[in-house]
C-alpha cells in the first residue's frame, strides 16, 4: 500500500535535514505504529506524505499503490486515498463543519469520476457516523473545529476519516491532549474502520494508544531514520525503559 524508500527531507526555509533516509512499507490491511522521541521527524514524515508546503524532498520516494505521492498536490493525494488526522486540527471560522465535510466528500468523488452525493444522501450517512463518535447535530453545524474541545477536535478528525473512507490513514499523535475516555472513543472509531483494504500508520509518543489500537508492526524513529522495527512488544519496551536503551543499542 504505502512504500517509502530512502526518503530524505529538508526544511525549505533553512538548510536543515529532518528525514535522513526513511524506509517503510505498510502492506494493505495492516496497522503500523511509529514511535520516537521529540524531534525525531515523525510529524515531518506525516506532513511530507500529505503534501504540506515548506519541505524539500532531497532524495528518495513515497508511493501509494505504486503512484508517486510526492508528485501530487495535497488534494490529489487525498483523492488517491491518503488521509492525515492532524495532531492539531485547524479551526476555520465561517466554514460550517457540514459544508466542509460535504465539499470534501464530493470533491474526492468528483476527482475519482464518481457521482456526487446528494444533500439528503450525505446527511443520512454523516448522521449515522457522527452518532457512533458521539458528535451531535450542534457540532456538525458549528464552524470547523471552532470552539471544539481537544477531544471534540480529534473525534471530528475521525469523523472526516470515516466519511472520506481513505485507503491509507496516518494518525499524527491523535492521542495527544485526550483523556482516557476520549482516547477510547477515538480508538473505537479507528478500529471500526479497520479492514482488509485499509492501512494505518499511527504516530504516537506513548504506548497507551496502542493498547486500544493494536498495531501489527512498531517502528522506532530517531534522528530522521527508522532505527528499529518489531512487534507490539517493542512499544511495551519503550513504555518501560524509554527510548534511551533502544537508541544506545542501535548507535
Amino acid at each position: 500500500m504505502l512504500k517509502i524508500s530512502n526518503l530524505h527531507v529538508a526544511l525549505e526555509e533553512e538548510d536543515k535535514q529532518i528525514l535522513k533516509g526513511v524506509n517503510l512499507e505498510v502492506p494493505a490491511g495492516s496497522v503500523h505504529a511509529i514511535m520516537g522521541p521529540n524531534g525525531s521527524g515523525k510529524s515531518t514524515l506525516s506532513y511530507v506524505l500529505s503534501g504540506k508546503d515548506g519541505y524539500k524532498v532531497t532524495d528518495g520516494s513515497a508511493t501509494l499503490d505504486g503512484a508517486d505521492l510526492l508528485d501530487m498536490e495535497p488534494e490529489e493525494r487525498a483523492a488517491a486515498g491518503l488521509f492525515l488526522a492532524f495532531q492539531y486540527p485547524v479551526e476555520i471560522p465561517g466554514v460550517g463543519n457540514m459544508t466542509f465535510l460535504r465539499t470534501a466528500v464530493n470533491s474526492q468523488r468528483k476527482a475519482r469520476g464518481e457521482e456526487e452525493l446528494s444533500a439528503a444522501e450525505f446527511l443520512k450517512v454523516v448522521r449515522e457516523k457522527a452518532k457512533s463518535l458521539k458528535i451531535d447535530a450542534e457540532m456538525l453545524k458549528r464552524p470547523v473545529n471552532v470552539g471544539f474541545s481537544g477531544g471534540e477536535k480529534k473525534r471530528n478528525e475521525i469523523l472526516q476519516m470515516a466519511m472520506l473512507e481513505p485507503k491509507m490513514c496516518i494518525l499524527d499523535e491523535t492521542d495527544s491532549g485526550l483523556d482516557v475516555d476520549a482516547m477510547k472513543l477515538v480508538a473505537e472509531g479507528v478500529n471500526a474502520l479497520r479492514s482488509e483494504g485499509r492501512s494505518f500508520l499511527v504516530i504516537t509518543h506513548y504506548q497507551r494508544l496502542l493498547d486500544h489500537i493494536q498495531p501489527d508492526v512498531v517502528h522506532i524513529m530517531a534522528d530522521g531514520r527508522i532505527v528499529k522495527s518489531g512487534g507490539p512488544e517493542l512499544a511495551l519496551e519503550v513504555e518501560h525503559n524509554g527510548y534511551a536503551d533502544i537508541l544506545a543499542e542501535v548507535a
Binding site: 504540506k52 492532524f86 459544508t99 465539499t103 470534501a104 470533491s107
Partner: peptide, 26 residues
C-alpha cells in the same frame, strides 16, 4: 491562512475551491 488552506486541500478540496471557501468565510 495557509494552514487552513492545507487543512482543506488535505481533505481533497481543490486549492481554488478551498480559497473560495475561505474568502466566503471571511
Amino acid at each position: 491562512d495557509e494552514t487552513a488552506l492545507f487543512y482543506l486541500t488535505s481533505r481533497g478540496i481543490p486549492r481554488v475551491d478551498a480559497q473560495n471557501m475561505l474568502v466566503l468565510a471571511f
